[in-house]
Amino acid sequence: MDAKLKETILNPIFKGNPITVLVLGICSSLAVTVEMKGACVMALSVILVTGLSSLVCSLLRKTIPNRVRIIIQLVVVALMVILVDQFLKAYAYGIDKQLSVYIGLIITNCIVMGRIEAFALSNKPLPSLLDGLANGAGYGLILIVVAFFRELLGSGTLFGLPVLSALGYTNNGLVILPPMALIILGCIVWIQRAIQKDLQEK
């Protein structure tokens, strides 16, 4: 695989992770990480929206008037988000009810518009698609890690199946609260910067 394409795919997962390095899309990571199931659906939704939006905007990049490029990007992102929401309502109604407004709030997620503006408008469709998918995957990875600890320690379950609760574990209510998501995120940033020392600010 082309080295540049490889870097496009791998960079957003670790070294250029949108949450831990770029610090984008934090709010939804607090709200939808109470359970693994919700976090996985949200991660999949963001991957699809970011990838497809980047692809469409890259295809239109030479035709979009400069003065309305943000509006056109917003329209494209909104189209993708509403399509995802409609399909979730049709095929995963229970999950859609659980996630409620947070699917619609993907439109406001800075990662999506940020990657379109920074990458898709100045690159070809295939690298833009891969960049969008990879950034969505990097966001989703952090969501799943946070949700893993929050559901395991807060409810004693994983995907609704009893794990710690079957061993007599008493649920930790603090972990269910949103501030715990930030604390876990901080720990992930700490671990990442301890491993990748070039990310440490001097």
Binding site: I64, P65, N66, V68, I72, V75
Partner: peptide, 18 residues
Amino acid sequence: TNSNLYTVIYTSVVCVLV
């Protein structure tokens, strides 16, 4: 692509399509 007429027609077409 930066003329007023093109901008208006482009945004109209995109909105109707979406």
